[in-house]
Design a protein around this nucleic acid. Structure first.
Length: 424
DNA sequence: TCTGGGGTCCTAGGACCC
DNA sequence: TCTGGGGTCCTAGGACCC
């Protein structure tokens, strides 16, 4: 809140081209080489090394559109491997926690660090040491941005990368002003395409213009309370609070298919598989759910009509039982299904979650035997890999599965072995 | 041929209540 | 001609994030 008159100081530490850096970690020969990591189903580029950027590749591009570029520059291409990335992320975050009293993990490869408690002159050496220790002890290159708010730290970090620096601080007002003046609106954390259009219509161009814009009523009207907060943050007054994300409010599992799916049975298999994933996450965070929603859709990039249907149900009680949830979603798919549509994606959402402890007594539909069964299932899947045990409803052929899941099944085991060796 | 997946927060408007 | 006012809860949808 604004009650604090003293300026806060924040750093954001993020891992450079995180997924690429993970792939490189055990393949040193790829250092300085252009590499990219693809999204699920080998669709788009979701991580690229700076060498890959240099040859003209971009974040989010569909891979099939840039095949020639990839070939010409011998860019190494990887399917994504989240088990590995999750492991390395935990190492980085663990180290940050160990070194700092106030760390908030923000995403798989970023964390905010509040270092307001340090004496004023200590900032630069602290930042240097932090960066070096993380890089040395995890093997992942990182960069830092520092400022009087999280938003300013984000901008500093982005600017550091542009300048080829490993860290940059905006705590000096003159430096801050100069950087904000050359930062376009849409590069501010929280300003996307929609909001930047609205702000430009009000005559603003840079982050600095926004921070200095006097008419707060207009900001309030066009951007609501979110806009007011962003403006305050740009002025160096920290007001965006982030809590630790220990319990999610919604859990989803959605996937594109490796090919078009026309049969109801296959859709049911896929959705049964996804609800299994979602329920596993649900139990892991100690929650139960009452809201279940199922989504089926065709390919929006196809010519012809786009088909998307979604249905939701509120169960009469809270549960975390995969078998029960599977029966529910299987029924829902049967109701949503339409003959003759080439389905390309399906998904399951669990919402209206509650803490399991608080609802223990209400779980009369679920016997303790069911709970035990789920516990055993989770243990086995944790030990031997996801999907070792699953419900029969998930099917055995699974022709609809994603392309990369098929392809990387072999390397996956050997990769996780590598991670085991490196872990404590 | 081929175009990701998983989240959060805020707001406006309707339903309902006194 | 008259048709209160204000609070709360819920939901759908929009915007954004990595």
């Amino acid at each position: 809140m604004s009650s604090t008159s003293k300026l806060e100081r924040w750093a954001i530490l993020d891992c450079n081209s995180f997924y690429c850096s993970c792939e490189r970690l055990f393949r040193p020969h790829l250092r300085d080489k252009p590499i990219v990591v693809l999204s699920n189903n080998d669709g788009c580029i979701i991580s690229l090394s700076k060498e890959a950027k240099a040859v003209g590749l971009k974040m989010g591009e569909p891979i099939f559109e840039v095949r020639t570029l990839i070939r010409r520059h011998r860019v190494q291409v990887f399917s994504s491997h989240y088990l590995l990335y999750g492991n390395l992320s935990r190492r980085v975050m663990g180290l940050l926690d160990q070194l700092n009293p106030d760390v908030i993990q923000y995403s798989i490869d970023e964390a905010f660090i509040n270092f307001s408690h340090l004496p004023l002159g200590a900032e630069a050496p602290w930042a240097l040491e932090l960066r070096e220790r993380v890089t040395r002890e995890t093997g992942i290159p990182v960069s830092l941005g520092v400022g009087h708010s999280k938003t300013l730290a984000k901008i500093a970090n982005k600017e550091a990368k542009k300048l080829g620096l490993k860290s940059l601080s905006l705590t000096e007002p003159q430096v801050c002003e100069a950087v904000l003046k050359r930062t376009p609106l849409e590069e501010v954390w929280g300003i996307g395409p929609g909001l930047s259009v609205r702000l430009k219509a009000l005559g603003m161009q840079s982050a600095w213009d926004f921070s200095q814009f006097e008419n707060t009523t207009l900001i309030r009207k066009h951007l609501g309370i979110v806009g007011e907060r962003m403006q305050a943050e740009l002025r160096g007054r920290s007001c965006i609070e982030l809590g630790e994300i220990e319990t999610r409010k919604m859990i989803s599992s959605t996937r594109s298919f490796g090919k078009k799916v026309y049969s109801c049975r296959e859709l049911q298999e896929a959705v049964a598989t996804y609800v299994g994933f979602a329920a596993e996450k649900l139990r892991k965070q100690g929650s139960v759910t009452r809201g279940v929603s199922v989504m089926l859709r065709s390919n929006p990039f196809d010519d012809g009509p786009y088909h998307r249907r979604e249905d939701q149900r509120i169960l009469p009680f809270y549960t975390d039982d995969t078998l029960l949830l599977t029966r529910t979603v299987t029924e829902m798919v049967a109701q949503l299904f339409k003959e003759g549509i080439g389905y390309k994606k399906a998904g399951v959402f669990l919402f209206d979650l509650a803490d399991k402890g608080a609802y223990q007594l209400d779980l009369f539909h679920q016997t303790s035997e069911d709970s035990k069964l789920m516990g055993v299932l989770d243990k086995i899947n944790e030990r031997w890999g996801r999907g070792t045990i699953k419900t029969a409803a998930c099917g055995t052929l699974q022709d609809w599965r994603m392309l990369c899941e098929k392809k990387s099944s072999k390397t996956q085991t050997s990769w996780s072995d590598l991670v085991e060796v490196g872990a404590d």
